[in-house]
């Protein structure tokens, strides 16, 4: 459904001296994989591994330096905004920052209705009420502003907005990493329920392999812009092939590990 073929993205920093070369940052190097319909596809990597760049490329919000991104056989990169309407309808994104991803000057009902308004989909009022209920918010939430909600509630608003145009794919970029541990599980469960309910394909990005294991069935591991391992999440978790993945798995704190005296220092050592 979503296919990446040798995708690279190079960011060029501004010159530090007038004659020196411009520093280049390779956010992604020659990444290829395919996400099949109905999958719950996890992307794991530490910060700076290119996860967010990947999300932007898949969502058509950024252009790759090389390679192609296709959605349902249609090319995503190199197209104008007007030509991307198929993607805007079928693929929606939930962003990481629950504060920054909602316009502080818009009422919640306008935020949720934005994809409908932008894509001229009729029946907005009823749809907004439906969505508020689906994500577990009260009907009067629509009249209020984002700052009147907690982080968890704001992620629910983001989810409602993403589901508004009835997409087939939901891309979640670290949707719980900015939240309190106590509400993470709630949002993750809500996300999983909604993915089931609406039969969505999920692309879930996280730095935390244990969260991905909880939500996804397939996982891709990124390191410094390169794809190091891809496969069934249980298989990767139980018998990681790449040394970096092994390190990631070992870095997950477990009760047994803590009891047998494994400390943070042991985890740092390769």
């Amino acid at each position: 459904m979503i296919k990446l073929e040798s995708v690279s993205r190079v960011y060029r920093r501004s010159r530090t001296s007038a004659f020196g070369p411009r520093a280049e940052v390779h956010a992604l190097r020659d990444v290829s994989f395919e996400i099949e319909q109905g999958r719950r596809f996890g992307i794991v990597g530490e910060s700076g591994s290119g996860k967010s760049t990947l999300v932007r490329l898949i969502a058509g919000l950024d252009q790759p330096t090389a390679g192609t991104v296709t959605f349902d056989g249609q090319r995503v990169n190199g197209r104008s905004e007007r030509q991307l309407s198929f993607l805007r309808r079928d693929l929606q994104v939930v962003f990481q920052d629950p504060m920054g991803s909602l316009d502080p000057r818009m009422r919640v009902r306008d935020i949720i209705a934005e994809p409908l308004v932008a894509q001229r989909i009729p029946g907005q009022e009823g749809r907004v009420a439906e969505l508020l209920e689906a994500v577990g918010l009260t009907a009067d939430a629509g009249r209020r502003f984002p700052h009147q909600f907690s982080g968890g509630q704001r992620q629910r608003i983001s989810l409602a907005r993403a589901l508004a145009p009835k997409p087939r794919v939901l891309v979640a970029d670290e949707p719980v990493s900015a939240l309190d541990v106590s509400v993470r599980a709630q949002i993750l469960n809500l996300l999983a329920d909604l993915v089931d309910q609406f039969a969505l394909t999920l692309v879930f990005v996280s730095h935390d392999l244990s969260v991905v294991r909880h939500v996804c069935d397939t996982v891709a591991v990124l390191r410094a812009g390169e794809l190091v391992e891809i496969g069934d999440v249980e298989r990767v978790y139980r018998s990681p092939e790449h040394p970096y993945t092994r390190q990631l798995v070992q870095a997950i704190p477990t009760l047994r590990g803590a009891l047998s005296g494994v400390t943070a220092e042991d985890l740092i050592r390769p």
Binding site: R56, L61, S85, L91, Q92, L102, E114, P115, A118, A164
Partner: peptide, 9 residues
């Protein structure tokens, strides 16, 4: 970014 992915130009 969210508005762009919602289809706003």
């Amino acid at each position: 970014l969210a508005a762009r992915s919602a289809g706003r130009t």
